[in-house]
């Protein structure tokens, strides 16, 4: 009787899980496994059908100079965007959390870059960076700076791409910080005030540690975004000049759709996934111990 009951409960359980499981398997697990499988095959054409080639795709990836270049770019991109966008987000959140005239307007204007589509954003920035007629050069000209070919110079192009990503992301992260700040009881600040703690001391010793769970969340998002946010490249540089602004995901796109090399793209995708997984696990394991969850 009771075992029949248990069985029936299990059946119910599985039935309830089925819709979600089907969606998850169809759109997440199957593509991931298919990608992994594809990375062990060669790209097929009419004349030469696809065949199993083991680790050959990985081997040619290691010999691919462009791969190493985009990987290096991606690391700089991450190092450039993550800390700065988080710091700015936190600063803006603390600033708009306080009493402020037109607070709603300020919050909204900080958030606006986030809701604009990246393609539109990139089109705006394209005309900021354009030499001679761009906003940057025109403002620079007022102060007597010479015109600079921002996107056409391998030394500045990645910096330009990073600036856009920061501009786009900081407002988004600000919302999370703002939400977290609003859950902090105001008595904590009052208690600290009575003890004579300065705003900075309070921020350093109380606010910041209490925001650590948010920071971890934002950090993981920022890391993932630093591999994911490549839309601006399509409009601004197409990865150029000479791959100076190309990023891993953009290179995957090129391999898949410009070179029609689905299998090499799969190989790169597997590497990207592995890297992201390692980073995310590392963050959780290392930071989790040092974070206070309420």
């Amino acid at each position: 009787m009771s075992s029949a009951h248990t069985t029936r409960n299990q059946v119910y359980g599985w039935l309830l899980l089925t819709p979600a499981a089907i969606l998850l398997i169809t759109f997440t697990h199957y593509p991931a496994i298919a990608t992994l499988a594809q990375s062990f095959f060669s790209t097929g054409t009419v004349s030469r059908p696809s065949k199993f080639i083991g680790l050959d795709n990985y081997r040619s990836m290691l010999e691919d100079e462009v791969f190493w270049k985009v990987l290096e770019n991606n690391i700089w991109y991450a190092v450039g965007t993550i800390p700065i966008s988080i710091a700015i987000a936190l600063l803006m959140a603390v600033w708009v959390n306080g009493k402020l005239p037109l607070r709603g307007l300020v919050r909204m204007s900080y958030f606006t870059p986030t809701i604009l589509p990246m393609i539109a954003v990139a089109n705006i920035w394209l005309f900021f960076y354009t030499p001679e007629i761009g906003l940057l050069d025109q403002v620079g000209a007022l102060f007597g700076f010479a015109s600079h070919n921002w996107l056409g110079d391998t030394d500045t192009v990645l910096g330009c791409i990073i600036a856009i990503a920061i501009w786009k992301e900081a407002g988004f992260f600000m919302i999370f910080y703002l939400a977290a700040l609003q859950t902090l009881p105001p008595e904590l600040e009052e208690a600290a005030k009575l003890e004579g703690a300065s705003r900075w001391t309070f921020f350093r010793r109380v606010t910041f540690p209490l925001l650590m769970p948010t920071t971890l969340f934002v950090l993981i998002n920022a890391v993932i975004n630093s591999f994911k946010l490549v839309d601006q490249l399509f409009i601004l540089t197409k990865g150029g000049p000479d791959n100076a602004s190309s990023l891993l995901l953009y290179y995957i796109y090129e391999a898949a759709f410009s070179f029609f090399d689905q299998n090499y793209a799969s190989t790169l995708t597997v590497v990207l996934l592995l890297m992201l997984a390692v980073i995310a696990i590392g963050q959780f394991v290392i930071l989790d111990k040092r974070i206070h969850y309420r």
């Binding site: 009881p185 904590l188 009052e190 208690a191 209490l210 650590m212 206070h292 309420r294």
Partner: peptide
């Protein structure tokens, strides 16, 4: 009333 103890 809420004690305002720093939870971390």
């Amino acid at each position: 009333q809420s004690y305002a103890i720093f939870p971390h």
